[in-house]
Amino acid sequence: MSFAVEFQAVSRHFGPANAPVKAVDGVDLTVPEGAFFAMLGPSGSGKTTCLRLISGFEKPTAGSIRIFGQDVSDIPPNRRNVNTVFQDYALFPHMTVRDNVAYGLMVKGVDRRLRAGKAEEMLALVKLEGYGDRKPSQLSGGQRQRVALARALVNEPRVLLLDEPLGALDLKLREAMQDELKALQARLGITFVFVTHDQGEALSMADSLAVFNNGKIAQIGTPAEVYAKPRTRFVADFVGSSNVLAPEVTRAFGGPDRWSSLRPEALRLTAPDGVALSGTVTAHRYLGAGSRVSVAVNGTEVSALVPAGHGLPATGSTVGLAFDPAALHVMEGEG
């Protein structure tokens, strides 16, 4: 099995050596060839720094990075066959869309006519035929995003890096682009490494994902694994806002003395008697397809997802919470 990207104990520290800011701290990860890999985490968790380590805009303080087996520690960005779609797109404002897309070929010395043809091909790939003569300032946000994508693909990179590429788009456009990106990746077969803070985006698009927290990887796995079996309290809360239950609560259900997680959709609201968990309703949040009901159970807030059409208990009333014991996931990690 060959890996597109391989991190071995990679750290990137900023600031003075005696009190460093550990942006990336001892990360090991492998991205399989042809994968759609997501790096998910809150801002400041180190995911973007990891992406910049792959592109070469940051150098690791320690550890080694391999791209398709080759150590790239001493290779500057322009010699890595890896291209990036930047968060702010970073289109060159003084060039036309065509020249932007053809830039990678221009700096390689490809003949003008040849690169114009290739640029047109790339623009067609992102459905922007006929936009070549415009300037980036004449395009909408979604169109700029596509130009940035076409520009990054023109060199036929081995790995495409995407730094929160959909962050600036509105919801409708973002969902459309998610589908398009996914289809494009399947068609081109290029390895995509995608950075996002949106867990929904990561779960729906990625083949596998790494959840970052404080410069470390909290968990790596397929979206289904990470969602159903979070390793730590952080992952349970960040990916899908799971209920995190303290060790004594886990023990009350016959589990070991460890933290556990329980998905809101696994909980059913019942009458308060005869069930293990009960509490007072503190709030509802309407979500369209259902409602999220918050219940205070002995000081811990537990959320349950009630599908649309079911009656909602009034705020302040006492309810019971029932669930299938198999849905309780005991976590191995701390924190």
């Binding site: 592109s55 322009n78 930047f86 970073a90 830039y103 700096v107 990054a152 060199n155």
Partner: peptide, 11 residues
């Protein structure tokens, strides 16, 4: 990011 984009594209 403009300078990085240029280097990223091979310049």
């Amino acid at each position: 990011s403009m300078l990085e984009a240029s280097a990223d594209l091979g310049a």
